[in-house]
Nucleic acid binder design. Structure first.
Length: 861
DNA sequence: GGACTGGAACTAGGG
DNA sequence: TACCCTAGTTCCAGT
């Protein structure tokens, strides 16, 4: 371990250097990182694009072996180097710490992903703004350039009142400044409109008028507010105000449990101070994190209250525009008095490096298992920045989702992290168009705190021993960012249209006595966030049968929503390439049909001779383009007993299966296609027992594109090893377009990886497989889906796993050491999936749209 | 009064 | 070019 760490540190410096900064694409990159690990880190050759590299994120970018990973221009940010202040501060820091800090800085890409601003309610646009540093911007060449507003950091929000921060040109985030805090709600901003000019009240255009407002002082004033990204970057506008208070208190707390020295060091370097500390977050990220911190008080500048921490810091860093220095500003925030939180701070994960949010982590490891005891409802209408909060995500049966960490016997509280992830068939990653939104108020019983993690808002919730490490998630809502804002981001390859399904992703990091950190992650069932979709798309919550004899004839009850008299149930069997091998419409008993219940007769399979179970899918269709997600079903040989679903609700089922696939009921949920093979790393000493068990679900997944994907071991981030826990990193190309494989790299100490075979294939039969998939999953139907969110990070013990089907997946080893390949890579079948993902019926538009978006981005850039 | 909600109008794009 | 449809975003009003 230590060796690894040491190595890591050693690398760190290099690594940091290696981080590619991006070109204009940075944002995308970042985005990519989190969202879609597109980057083929492993690729020996120079990254296709810097973007990819960036996407790789810090973790991936670094090459363990020190091999020149990134050709792309990298920004070597050494905290000190660039900023005198940093140097000073760092100098005082212990090497290790310094390294970390450095590393963090080096991870430029991280920043890039999503603008912190994006995080903020104002987000979308803001995302760009995220690039805090002017330098970054320039380098990135954002669209912003176009308009004065462009400057990302300046988010309007920053200086609501035209605070100094808001320099002309800077202040406005490119299209609307992201930062405009939600508070700035579009509406308010008449200015915005002005900006936009002709725009209608509804900002569709990417650069949507509204966002532009930042330039106007007036606008700024309006927006100034609390929401300003500065505060809580991600904070929804609404919340932000509140947050501020809380956050402040929070920060202090954080400090409490974190190593003060580390914090100080980090703060000095990063200025952010919050939870993210441990992580090697890029400067920007840090800044953002700062934002979280309610350092408002810290503001130096006029209007400072409105200023974002991040902004300040960024500004300083980048251009020194701010007179303030990190020290002054950021550092001060450390001094913030501790606040009144009653819950003792959960033991914060202090490791300097936390796994990137797009890393696939396991849901269980050894004795530990993170489970979603109560799943969120399948529908939750997300709110726009321009709207008021739509409340916390609720559970199907009422109440709220519940997450529990099993197997943790310590008395130390922990921090449960929550962010909004994707729900498509690709690797789980932060969703570019949705952010978690902190809910506060009388009805909220669970304290929480928002932080930014690489431009992705992360809600931190205490997991207390007294509560049996169980948390009721009644403090998390979902914020929708305007598609136009996100799509214009340079490097952003995802499209928002019809990309309205998300998952709540929970993570917990546990420091082990050995010094290692075990990180677990579990993702909820998909949540449809679109009002329209929620009202129109049929949804299957449960199915009474999972299997049937080939002869069919049995009746299956489907519980769900939006069933109509003309609803059809179609059974489909697809080949690996997505082609339909067989498709037939089942007979629906319309007499008994109800909006939430449908009785269907299982159609006979195309052949009655079955020697082994055949996995197929079915979906409910209310008309063209109105299909439910694919649901799994299997025809089994006659001698195999039919599996009937228990009458419980999904949640119950989830509980039952929780160990493997926490929170996912087998049948009820659509499955996720197994695209990725996950290599599981096992290094756990502690987790032997659970490991096998858990492992099944934890797979490191990698989606390799046809060849690309291999993750080079080198990529493995020793850096992150700081924490000593191995993390898998997913590298994916950001764009749907590119079939680039998603590769997950396991961070592990060399030699610790278990043989690849030990790891469960993504498609393992474990409950995890039952995970929902996007409607488009069809093609993968035959292979069980893997639990997207689960991978092994820390120590997971290998368990028995299924091996992915050859055709679908290929494995590649990711180990740095050259030790046996541990990571398996699966190749994603792009074209079809994409089409399906977004336009089940009509892929062309989707593709076209993407092209348009890309072009726009390029142009803007 | 403010947070939630549900519903629907408005708008842009594509066909 | 007008019309229709779809889906995203913004508004409004009720609880």
């Amino acid at each position: 371990m230590k060796s690894a760490e040491e190595d890591a540190f050693g690398f760190t410096p290099n690594i940091s250097l290696s981080l590619p900064l991006g070109n204009a694409c940075l944002p995308s990159q970042y985005h990519g990182l989190q969202s879609s690990p597109n980057i083929s880190v492993t690729e020996p050759q120079p990254f296709d694009s810097q973007d990819e590299l960036r996407a790789a994120g810090f973790y991936s970018t670094v090459r363990p072996n020190g091999a020149p990973t990134l050709e792309s221009p990298r920004i070597e940010i050494t905290a000190y180097g660039q900023f005198p202040e940093d140097e000073v501060q760092e100098s005082s820091l212990p090497m290790a710490k310094r390294v970390n800090s450095i590393v963090t800085l080096s991870l430029p890409s991280a920043d890039g992903y999503r603008d912190p601003s994006c995080l903020s309610p104002a987000s979308s646009v803001s995302s760009r703004s995220g690039l805090s540093d002017a330098s970054y911007e320039s380098s990135f060449s954002y669209n912003y350039d176009n308009s004065p507003q462009n400057s990302p950091w300046q988010s309007p929000s920053v200086s609501p009142k035209g605070s100094t921060l808001a320099l002309p040109g800077e202040g406005v985030a490119s299209c609307g400044s992201p930062r405009h805090s939600p508070s700035t709600s579009p509406r308010t901003s008449i200015t915005d409109d002005t900006w936009m000019g002709p725009r209608g009240s509804r900002p569709n255009s990417p650069c949507g008028a509204k966002r532009k407002y930042s330039l106007n002082g007036s606008d700024a004033s309006h927006r100034s507010f609390p929401y300003s990204p500065s505060h809580s970057p991600g904070l929804s506008p609404h919340t932000s105000p509140r947050l501020s208070v809380t956050e402040e208190s929070w920060l202090p707390n954080t400090n409490q449990y974190t190593n003060s020295a580390i914090l100080a060091a980090i703060n000095a370097l990063t200025t952010d101070g919050v939870a993210d500390l441990g992580e090697g977050i890029p400067i920007k990220a840090r800044k953002t994190s700062l934002e979280h911190s309610p350092t408002v008080s810290l503001k130096v500048e006029p209007g400072g209250g409105e200023l974002r921490h991040g902004d300040l810091c960024q500004d300083e860093l980048s251009a020194n525009r701010m007179t303030l220095k990190k020290e002054g500003y950021c550092g001060s925030f450390l001094d913030v008095p501790q606040h009144p939180y009653t819950w003792t701070k959960p033991k914060q994960y202090i490791s300097p490096s936390l796994p990137a949010l797009d890393w696939q982590l396991p849901s269980s490891s050894g004795p530990y298992s993170l489970q979603i005891d109560v799943q969120p409802k399948a529908h939750h209408r997300a709110h726009y920045e321009t709207e008021g909060s739509r409340g916390a995500v609720k559970a199907l049966a009422g109440g709220h989702p519940v997450v529990q960490l099993h197997g943790y016997m310590e008395n130390e509280p922990l921090t449960l992290q929550l962010f909004i992830g994707t729900a498509d068939d690709r690797l789980l990653r932060p969703h570019a168009f949705y952010q978690v939104h902190r809910i506060t108020g009388k009805t909220v019983s669970t304290p929480s705190h928002e932080i930014l993690h690489n431009n992705t808002k992360v809600l931190e919730i205490p997991l207390l021993p007294e509560n049996n490490m169980r948390a009721i998630i009644d403090c998390a809502g979902i914020l929708k960012l305007r598609n136009s804002d996100i799509e214009l981001r340079k490097g952003e390859t995802d499209i928002g249209r019809k990309n309205t399904r998300v998952r709540m992703v929970f993570r917990v990091h546990m420091n082990q006595p050995s010094g290692r950190t075990v990180s677990l992650q579990v993702a909820s069932n998909p949540i449809e966030c679109s009002q329209r979709s929620a009202q129109e798309l049929p949804l299957v919550d449960k199915q009474s049968l999972e299997t049937s004899a080939a002869s069919g004839g049995e009746r299956m009850v489907l519980d769900g929503h939006n069933f109509q008299h003309d609803s059809k149930v179609v059974f489909v069997e697809k080949a690996q390439d997505g082609h339909h091998i067989w498709e037939t419409e089942a007979k629906v008993e319309r007499d008994t049909l109800k909006p939430n219940s449908l009785l269907v007769e299982i159609p006979p399979y195309r052949t009655q001779r079955l020697s082994t179970p055949v996995h197929v899918n079915f979906y409910v269709c209310n008309g063209k383009r109105k299909r439910s997600q694919y649901q799994r079903f299997a025809y089994v040989p006659a001698n195999v007993p039919t599996i009937k679903t228990e009458p419980h609700d999904d949640y119950d089922a989830a509980l039952v299966c929780s160990q493997h696939a926490p929170a996912r009921p087998l049948h009820p949920k659509p499955y996720y296609p197994p695209q990725l093979v996950t290599p599981v790393v096992s290094d756990l000493r502690p987790c032997v027992v659970g490991g096998a068990y858990a492992v099944g679900q934890q797979r490191l997944v990698a989606k390799p594109s046809s060849g690309t994907a291999s993750c080079s071991p080198s990529t493995s981030p020793k850096l992150h090893d700081l924490s000593q826990s191995p993390f898998s990193k997913c590298l994916q190309q950001p764009g749907h377009q590119s079939p680039v494989p998603h590769v997950s790299i396991i961070q592990e100490t060399p030699g610790r990886f278990p043989p690849p075979d030990l790891y469960p294939p993504s498609g393992s039969s474990s409950p995890a497989t039952s995970q929902p998939s996007t409607p488009t999953d069809g093609p993968f139907a035959q292979t069980p889906g893997m639990a997207p969110a689960q991978t092994l990070s820390g120590s997971s013990s290998p368990g028995a796993q299924e091996i992915p089907k050859p055709a679908e997946r290929s494995r590649s080893s990711l180990q740095e050491d050259g030790s046996p390949a541990t990571a398996a890579v699966s190749i994603k079948e792009e074209p079809q999936e994409l089409d399906q993902m977004y336009l089940d019926d009509d892929p062309l538009p989707f593709l076209h749209h993407r092209l348009v978006v890309m072009k726009k981005a390029e142009n803007t850039h």
